[in-house]
Nucleic acid binder design. Structure first.
Length: 220
DNA sequence: AACTCGGGGCA
DNA sequence: TGCCCAGAGTT
């Protein structure tokens, strides 16, 4: 596992998301917005969004239609605008206007699921966590770190067993960058992959077609 | 477990 | 045009 992480670290030496350096509230909003769209899109939207809105009260001060307009370029924006306003109200009512630091409290907020909560606690509050998104899940399963039919939660548990706690947060970043830019969902770049020799699915993909034709199921 | 939300990016 | 994408909520 350490070999895998060091190789990924060499491939993407500055694997991190700029949004992770924002304050807890902006980070929570940004990760909530990122669901099912690329971080580049979120960066474009939040650049102006965070100029206009700084506090939970700011998001509640406008009609929801106006907030929807401000995040219009993001997919699923109607859900997200409603979530942001409900979340803002809950922060004011229940948490003194601040983002709670406990994972369990975070997931009570609308639009904040397990993945978002993991990103927030690990990047804003220094609590080690491995957020499993589609990239992390795909990469883990291809490498053979988890089984193909494992749930997201099972993938997270297995990664936590494989990686020392102090490296959980940067492990998350490395797997995401590796999955986003190299081990893509379609056409993974196996031919030039430095992890090919330890990758379960990569070796399978790189087998010459003639072998597959001659021996369809050599192991069964 | 399947369905829904949804515009942007890319082939 | 068609397909996929740094998820979460509801049924």
């Amino acid at each position: 596992m350490s070999h895998i992480l060091s190789v990924m670290g060499e491939m993407f030496p500055d694997a991190h998301c700029e949004l992770n350096h924002r304050n807890p509230f902006e980070l929570t909003i940004a990760v909530l917005l990122s669901a099912q769209c690329t971080d580049e899109t979120v960066n474009k939207v939040t650049a102006s969004l965070f100029q206009k809105y700084q506090t939970p009260a700011d998001y509640l001060a406008v009609p929801i239609e106006e907030l929807e307009q401000d995040i219009r370029r993001i997919g699923l924006f109607r859900n997200k605008a409603a979530h942001i306003q409900k979340l803002s109200q809950m922060l004011i009512d229940n948490y003194g206007g601040e983002v709670p630091q406990q994972h369990e409290e975070l997931t009570k907020l609308p639009g904040v699921g397990r993945k978002t909560a993991n990103v927030v606690v690990s990047n804003a509050f220094g609590v080690p966590a491995i957020a499993v998104d589609t990239h992390v899940e795909r990469v883990s399963k291809r490498l053979g770190l988890a089984k193909a039919d494992d749930s997201v939660l099972e993938v997270e548990k297995k990664l936590m067993k494989l990686v020392p706690r102090e490296h959980w947060t940067d492990t998350h970043h490395r797997l995401i960058f590796f999955g986003r830019y190299h081990c893509k969902a379609q056409n993974p770049n196996c031919p030039v992959c430095p992890l090919l020799d330890v990758c379960k699915e990569g070796k399978q993909r790189m087998k010459p077609a003639v072998n597959r034709k001659a021996k369809p199921n050599p192991n069964k």
